[in-house]
Design a protein around this nucleic acid. Structure first.
Lengths: 210, 210
DNA sequence: GTCTATACACAGATAGAC
DNA sequence: GTCTATCTGTGTATAGAC
């Protein structure tokens, strides 16, 4: 847990929960993801929710507090999903596939949070309030790099690939999916996940004589 | 050419050119890329350049005009580089590698522009002024998809991969590199390009029995 | 829980002196 | 080409009535 003092019943995620607060978080998350955090005004958030901007401050202490909550809910779930995935064992490839699938699974529920984190992490990192992002980032990297290194030392993954670079590569590729992913579109998160696994593991080229 | 009325000698790129105007563009580009377009103020740009905000308007008509110029300079060069790459012929894999290398080559000179386009395209697309971004986007996609489709029909690339998805995948992966790429760091753009080509084409796994 | 009304800061941009 | 001074709009946030 990244930690927060929940005034809401636990289990209520900002992007799927019921309740007014969760609804407001969901609306704000989509706007932040689509237009950017700085470019989104609290008036727009309130208007989308059918209330006036002043009323938002009954639910949240500030605009920053809103993103904060959106991001923490996502990060908590993602961390748990990664830990569960690597805990299941298996050969290196299965473990890598497990991490990739865990990313896509959480992405379905937290697409806006994934987009916000990907787009605004540079800006948010400059604010003291979001110093924890760097820590979580490092923890995620540790989990992935362990799997990649083990696979490499066992000869399952290519020796010439830098594990940290490979992790960033996969992470950013998946994060970028939220820009065009549509839950009601032709491609399900599963379909995309399987295509991505195919590319990451086996590449685009068929005659891999490497 | 995306087109603009140049009051400057041609060939002067915003990120490497000499002259006051080019210098200001370079400073602004870095700030926009690091902190976000909306989050960066004209006062910050001016301050970084050692002048006052009012003085900026002697060089540019507006903040939007500044990003506009940064993006156009990049897009012009990128388009030319892609066209040159596909014009060189070769087998599907060579052509794909050519496109990837062309991306990384241009990225060296226009890293901030690449970051801005990647991070802010959602927001910028909502402004009339930047309607051309969609057109350029489509043109880039056309170039890539042609190569990917041909490779697929020739049996060189996996049949199950969606060409448009594959293009977006590669494009976004490369764009994300600018977040951590450091021209004076351990990894050169070439080194990164070769690792990316390796992953894209052959995958991470060694025993690709696919 | 929402609205009214408003404080206060800061944004982008302009005009004219130097 | 830069500065001084400033206009005007809009942003976040607050206080108190309903």
């Amino acid at each position: 847990m990244v930690g927060r003092d929940a005034a809401e019943p636990p289990g209520a995620s900002p992007e799927s929960g019921s309740g007014r607060r969760a609804q407001l978080l969901s609306i704000a998350a989509e706007l932040f993801a689509r237009r950017g955090f700085a470019a989104t005004t609290v008036r727009e958030i309130a208007e989308s929710a059918g209330i006036l901007s002043g009323s938002l401050y009954h639910h949240f202490e500030s605009k920053e507090a809103v993103v904060d909550e959106i991001l923490r809910a996502y990060l908590d779930e993602q961390l748990a999903a990664f830990r569960k995935a690597v805990g299941q064992g298996g050969d290196p490839r299965s473990r890598l596939e497990g991490l990739i699938r865990a990313s896509f699974t959480v992405l379905r529920r937290h697409r806006w949070a994934v987009a916000i984190l990907h787009n605004e992490s540079g800006y948010l990192a400059s604010l003291e309030r979001f110093a924890y992002l760097e820590q979580v980032n490092k923890e995620f990297e540790r989990i992935w790099v362990r799997v990649l290194r083990e696979g490499r030392s066992r000869g399952a993954f290519r020796a010439e690939l830098n594990p940290r670079l490979t992790h960033r590569f996969i992470r950013d590729s998946i994060s970028s999916v939220v820009r065009w992913y549509n839950p009601r579109g032709r491609m399900s998160a599963q379909t995309i996940a399987e295509q991505y696994i195919r590319i990451f593991c086996d590449g685009v080229v068929t005659t891999s004589s490497a």
